[in-house]
């Protein structure tokens, strides 16, 4: 049972369309809020849509249901992507996205489990969410609960020592109810200088992330983080693994879906001006093809 009975499981094409709508919400929200992040949310959103609409056992009308699957967005600065997925899935009205980052809003710059329905763990200081996700998985095992905990990390986030503290100890406890998804978009906020100031190098290249997670005793899978079939197949494979924790290295593109934002580190947290926002939305909402 991977979804609610009352919700017809969306097919691949529907998921792709939901993700396209989500991207438009993200761009519109960040432009409207004059703040927030874009690059990371656009790289992670396909996975969040797949998780919330096809994979997670959750009840949007009962967000604190004891046996729900947990999702911890450890790369908390991509909060707008999580909020968008939650709103579209029915946790709160989509119109509430307009309050993002505003005073008194339930939708804070970084996820706050104390105020936002559907947020299973506060996060924002990088690496911490993953550590808490390990604790959730450990607690679920100790309590004999069958739910799965998903933690989504950035590849840059894997610079943090606490990530490897948690990664090291998980296999010692026989954790196999925790799935780490690393959004490997190959760009950080600033990153390492390459040939020039605008050429930024990632912390991990080639198979480095795969090798590191493997070395820590995790079963490592790879997927195309923008391909719904790849995402669904890999998550299903991950859930079937027993005895060891699973890390999925998701190959993604920072800024995915908006041509002029893709693979450009400056869009990590840049706010589009009205012309840029209009251009982005024109790509995401082709005439007659959408809007929401």
């Amino acid at each position: 049972m991977t979804q609610q009975a009352h919700l017809a499981a969306p097919g691949i094409a529907e998921l792709e369309d939901l993700a396209r709508q989500a991207r438009a919400h993200i761009v519109r929200t960040i432009a409207g809020a004059h703040g927030g992040h874009l690059g990371g949310p656009l790289s992670v959103i396909d996975m969040l849509i797949a998780l919330y609409f096809r994979v997670l056992r959750v009840r949007p009308d009962e967000p604190t249901w004891d046996d729900r699957d947990r999702l911890v967005l450890s790369k908390g600065h991509s909060s707008i992507a999580l909020y968008t997925a939650l709103a579209m899935r029915g946790y709160f009205p989509i119109a509430e996205l307009r309050t993002f980052d505003a005073i008194d809003s339930r939708l804070q710059g970084h996820p706050d489990m104390t105020i936002t329905p559907g947020v299973d763990m506060s996060s924002g200081s990088l690496g911490l969410g993953f550590s808490a996700a390990l604790g959730i998985a450990l607690g679920a095992k100790a309590a004999g609960k069958g739910f799965t905990t998903y933690a989504i990390l950035g590849d840059g986030e894997c610079n943090e020592g606490i990530v490897w503290e948690a990664a090291h100890v998980a296999p010692r406890h026989g954790i196999d109810n925790l799935i780490a998804i690393i959004d490997h978009n190959k760009l950080q906020q600033f990153g390492w200088r390459g040939a020039s100031a605008t050429d930024r190098l990632p912390a991990y290249t080639g198979t480095q992330l795969v090798d590191r997670w493997s070395a820590f005793g995790w079963r490592v899978l790879e997927m195309d983080g923008h391909d719904m079939s790849s995402i669904l197949t890999t998550l299903e494979q991950a859930r079937a693994v027993r005895g060891v924790p699973v890390a999925i290295v998701a190959h993604t593109v920072k800024g995915k879906g908006v041509s002029f934002m893709e693979n450009d580190f400056t869009w990590h947290a840049r706010v589009p001006n009205p012309q840029e926002a209009a251009a982005a939305l024109a790509e995401l909402e082709p005439a007659g093809g959408g809007g929401s």
Binding site: D120, L134, A140, A142
Partner: peptide, 24 residues
């Protein structure tokens, strides 16, 4: 009910937080 988390205190406290959310 004793969990050895090794010599890694940031995660020690972080994992404790996660366990608290499950009712421990």
């Amino acid at each position: 009910r004793f969990f050895q988390m090794g010599i890694a205190e940031q995660n020690l406290l972080g994992a404790a937080a996660g366990m608290a959310t499950v009712g421990f």
